[in-house]
Amino acid sequence: MSQAILQVEDLSKSFGGVKAVSGVSFELMENQVLGVIGPNGAGKTTLINLLTGFVRPDRGKVLFRGQNIAGMKPYKVANLGVARTFQMVKPFYQLPAFKNLVLPLKSPRAKQLTGGRYGDRDAVAKDLLEEVGFERDSWVIFKQASVLPHGYLKRLELARCIAMAADLVVLDELFSGLSLAEVASLVPVIDKLRVQGKTIIMVEHRLRELFRIADRVMVMNFGQKIAEGKPREVMEMPAVRGAYLGSEEEGA
């Protein structure tokens, strides 16, 4: 029987007069994949920032394995086992691709999990890069991140989360800016994470691919949760159609 790994209660955050996230509550079971969708400016990224400690909530709780992590510093959240990616990629630009993973492989969390016996981290880093779709025996893994194409940097973001050995992985628009083929090659990687027992939150605009992966989908608009359920069912809901298409029911 799986249990809730994350319980969010009445989470709220305003910037000036704008309610970026307002009274959002939801639960996430262990090993589930939750998709978060909504129009631009719906508060999806703020929600992620609230979950991972980058923004302090005005009110509400975020219980990760029963512990309230709302307002906790980002590095402490990371050490508890919550990893995230950034929509605008943020690699260590001056390090080679594989060295970007050596840092998380030597992180305080990794030390805690391995007892300081890390093994050959360079080799592990290269394995990880291969797993997310870098060609192994090629020059790509040795290139500085600053010269890598966007597609590789997105993969690097994902690999960093895997390297952190997180239990909850939060992906902020991982698929944005990627070609159809690139997205198609990443879908199995995420499936594999689920098989390994990870719990995943995905903020996405690429609905077709998201619906293939997600168990549940939560829809946000103007900072509020307007719907939650199975992917296809959610898209049939009038409120969701209204938010996305601006349907005539809205005015009725």
């Binding site: 991972t52 400690g53 980058f54 510093k73 980002p74 590095y75 402490k76 990371a78 050490n79 990893a83 995230r84 950034f86 943020k90 690699p91 260590f92 630009y93 001056q94 390090l95 840092l103 998380p104 030597k106 992180s107 305080p108 969390r109 960093r160 952190m164």
Partner: peptide, 24 residues
């Protein structure tokens, strides 16, 4: 050194360093 690597981490991207559990 550990703190030295943390130095280099936050030098390159503080937000990413935070996601790696480095107290920036």
């Amino acid at each position: 050194s550990r703190i030295g690597r943390a130095f280099r981490g936050i030098a390159q991207d503080e937000r990413t360093a935070l996601t790696l559990g480095i107290n920036a």
